Amino acid sequence: MDASGSTPPDPDESATSGDEPGDESSVEDGELSTEQLRERVEQKYDFDDFGPRDMAEMTAEEWEVAFDADSWITGQELLDRVEADLKQRVLDRDAFARIERGEDYLLAYSETGFALVYPDGSVEGEGTVLRDVKPVIALCSMDDYDAPDVPDGEILPEPQDVPEGGSELGNLMVQAIAIVQLLAGVILLGAGIVLGMEPIPLVAGLGFLVIGVGLLFVVANARLSDRFRSEEFRDRLRAVNVGGERPDFLPVDEDGNLTSDRSDGERETVLPPSEHDE
């Protein structure tokens, strides 16, 4: 007690009371920075169209704030969601793969690579299929991601059912324009000759002829390209056992059994471990 009769404050209490606001402020600052980082991630990445490039660019800090590691969907439900999402992507021509479902795995493969997905979210494989499947696993493991329904029927057509080309409407329109250009060119050239080799109609006629021939060349090239792409697509279908033989490099036999013991060391974990696993 001092001369005025009041009791001086306890130094320990003063130090404690002085630390509390700072601690609360630092916690609030930490939460604010996390929220800011989450907002930046949501603005930077389009999770409705999340692909391999986005997955490669995302840092560990961005991944941690974007996804809740304690709410991952795993097991058969994860395989169901990945299967539905991959099949929809194949139907939309965003990916090319044949998809087969096993008891404890999901297999997606093309003529050059494969991806073998396990219920725990791990995956192994090679090629572009593996690259395309990884972000699908990450998305489908998120509870707030709405996976599409499994498409009905076969998602890949038989090779003989692939048309020779796309829609002919565009080619026919360009072809009609080319014919009009050619007719206009012939008429102008004829008029120039009849009028005594007048330069203006002759030059205009030659210009229309050049344009018409160029447009016909574009149409012919487009049709050849369509036929080439159709034949290439048929070859890819045959290579993945659609009307052809199964690729030899697959780790699954014709009966759906794994051809060898797949060790955990060969698998790549797509989902980060949760706090309970650490």
Score class of each variant (00 low, 15 high):
residue 234 R to I: 08
residue 233 F to A: 09
residue 224 L to R: 12
residue 233 F to Q: 12
residue 224 L to I: 05
residue 244 G to I: 00
residue 251 P to K: 02
residue 240 V to M: 05
residue 234 R to A: 10
residue 251 P to Q: 10
residue 231 E to N: 15
residue 251 P to I: 08
residue 249 F to H: 12
residue 231 E to D: 15
residue 240 V to N: 04
residue 227 R to A: 14
residue 237 L to E: 03
residue 237 L to G: 06
residue 243 G to C: 05
residue 239 A to I: 01
residue 246 R to N: 01
residue 229 R to A: 12
residue 222 A to C: 01
residue 222 A to K: 11
residue 231 E to V: 07
residue 226 D to M: 08
residue 252 V to F: 11
residue 227 R to T: 04
residue 235 D to F: 12
residue 232 E to K: 11
residue 248 D to Y: 02
residue 233 F to W: 04
residue 229 R to W: 08
residue 226 D to R: 03
residue 232 E to Y: 11
residue 252 V to W: 06
residue 246 R to C: 07
residue 230 S to N: 10
residue 248 D to F: 07
residue 250 L to R: 07
residue 240 V to W: 01
residue 227 R to G: 06
residue 220 A to L: 10
residue 227 R to Y: 04
residue 227 R to K: 14
residue 236 R to V: 05
residue 225 S to P: 00
residue 252 V to G: 09
residue 242 V to S: 05
residue 239 A to H: 04
residue 241 N to Y: 02
residue 244 G to Y: 01
residue 224 L to K: 13
residue 232 E to P: 00
residue 241 N to I: 00
residue 228 F to N: 15
residue 245 E to L: 12
residue 236 R to F: 00
residue 247 P to R: 04
residue 251 P to D: 03
residue 240 V to S: 01
residue 222 A to Q: 10
residue 239 A to L: 07
residue 230 S to W: 06
residue 252 V to M: 06
residue 227 R to N: 08
residue 239 A to W: 01
residue 243 G to P: 10
residue 243 G to Q: 07
residue 222 A to V: 04
residue 237 L to A: 01
residue 234 R to C: 08
residue 242 V to D: 06
residue 232 E to Q: 13
residue 240 V to F: 03
residue 246 R to D: 02
residue 251 P to A: 04
residue 250 L to C: 10
residue 250 L to V: 11
residue 229 R to H: 10
residue 236 R to W: 06
residue 220 A to P: 01
residue 224 L to T: 14
residue 252 V to Y: 08
residue 232 E to G: 00
residue 236 R to H: 06
residue 234 R to N: 10
residue 220 A to M: 11
residue 230 S to E: 05
residue 226 D to G: 13
residue 251 P to F: 01
residue 251 P to C: 05
residue 250 L to N: 06
residue 228 F to K: 15
residue 239 A to F: 01
residue 229 R to K: 14
residue 245 E to R: 14
residue 230 S to R: 10
residue 221 N to Q: 14
residue 226 D to F: 05
residue 234 R to S: 06
residue 229 R to F: 07
residue 239 A to V: 01
residue 220 A to H: 13
residue 233 F to H: 07
residue 234 R to P: 13
residue 250 L to P: 04
residue 226 D to A: 14
residue 220 A to Q: 13
residue 221 N to A: 12
residue 230 S to K: 12
residue 221 N to Y: 09
residue 237 L to F: 12
residue 244 G to C: 00
residue 247 P to L: 06
residue 250 L to D: 11
residue 222 A to E: 07
residue 221 N to P: 00
residue 247 P to Q: 09
residue 241 N to P: 02
residue 252 V to C: 03
residue 232 E to S: 10
residue 229 R to P: 00
residue 233 F to Y: 15
residue 243 G to N: 04
residue 250 L to F: 11
residue 227 R to M: 11
residue 221 N to S: 12
residue 236 R to T: 02
residue 221 N to M: 06
residue 220 A to R: 14
residue 229 R to S: 09
residue 242 V to P: 04
residue 241 N to K: 12
residue 235 D to C: 00
residue 226 D to Y: 00
residue 236 R to K: 15
residue 237 L to I: 03
residue 230 S to Y: 12
residue 243 G to D: 09
residue 244 G to T: 02
residue 251 P to R: 04
residue 240 V to P: 00
residue 223 R to H: 04
residue 247 P to F: 06
residue 228 F to I: 11
residue 222 A to W: 05
residue 230 S to L: 03
residue 222 A to P: 00
residue 240 V to E: 02
residue 227 R to E: 13
